[in-house]
């Protein structure tokens, strides 16, 4: 028996909106730790890792570890039927082949349940070790989204370079080139407006903007995004989900041979 009651149901709606175009189907895993997912895009160069910790749910019952395969566009369609202020409860029976999403309006005057068929998904699960990154950039998530959107009008790839001068996002395309430099700016009025760069060594990596733009669909989940970079390692783009966990995107760099 699984029963997870999330007071801030909009969080789950936003999570689905941020991953449904990157990943078509995925196994949601539920254990005492929480509700989690790890899935790769169809070309296996990008990965999303989600964790919503059990403590973040108002009620969290998970009698045994369970993995539920879901088609994400279908799940997103169902969650779109929940109001932004609704409480969402996820329910499933052990060994069952369906999951139920229950939506309660804040004043309890409307209760809806949507039952969705589960599917069997064979997916590779990757062990991602904690790594020391050469550079970690924390910046407003909206600023990062704007940069990715602007650069993708010029080119297909972005070179992210971190030096002591700051972080530079560059692209080039048929019509020209673009460079956007953000300098460390820790002395702003609001902490969420700060750009903080922790650099152990300079690093420069190239990524496909198509994926970066897809990751920025998680912008409504967090004011701050953290970008962790190391040579020869996939970049990690992390959005912390208030007091509940995180959504992390990994993307393999483009390499010249």
């Amino acid at each position: 028996m699984l029963e997870l009651r999330l007071l801030q149901g909009s969080l789950l709606k936003k999570v689905l909106e941020s991953i449904k175009d990157l990943v078509t189907e995925a196994n949601f895993d539920c254990s005492a730790t929480g509700f989690s997912l790890q899935a790769m895009d169809s070309s296996h160069v990008a990965l999303v890792a989600l964790l919503l910790r059990s403590e973040g749910f108002e009620h969290f019952r998970c009698d045994r570890n369970i993995s539920m395969g879901m088609k994400l566009v279908n799940m997103a369609m169902m969650l779109k039927c929940a109001g932004n202020d609704d409480i969402i409860t996820i329910k499933a029976d052990d060994g069952g082949d369906t999951v139920t999403f229950m939506f309660e309006s804040p004043n309890q005057d409307k209760i809806a349940d949507f039952e969705m068929k589960l599917m069997n998904i064979d997916s590779e699960h990757l062990g991602i070790p904690e790594a020391e990154y050469q550079a970690i950039v924390r910046m407003p998530s909206s600023e990062f989204a704007r940069i990715c959107k602007d650069l993708s009008t010029i080119g297909d790839t972005v070179i992210i370079s971190v030096t002591k001068e700051g972080v530079k996002f560059s692209t080039k395309g048929d019509i020209g080139t673009a460079n956007i430099v953000c300098r460390q700016n820790a002395t702003v009025d609001k902490p969420e407006d700060a750009i903080i760069i922790e650099m152990k060594e300079p690093v420069s990596l190239t990524f496909a903007l198509r994926y970066m733009n897809s990751f920025t669909k998680a912008t409504p989940l967090a004011n701050i995004v953290t970008i962790s970079l190391s040579s020869e390692l996939p970049v990690v783009v992390e959005y912390k989900i208030a007091e509940m966990g995180y959504i992390r995107f990994y993307l393999a760099p483009k390499i010249e041979e």
């Binding site: 590779e124 062990g127 390692l233 393999a252 041979e257």
Partner: peptide, 14 residues
């Protein structure tokens, strides 16, 4: 030539 390696070249399968 520019290419992208798949993620299993960086992370092990569990």
């Amino acid at each position: 030539e520019v290419f992208q390696r798949v993620l299993v070249t960086y992370f092990e399968c569990k």
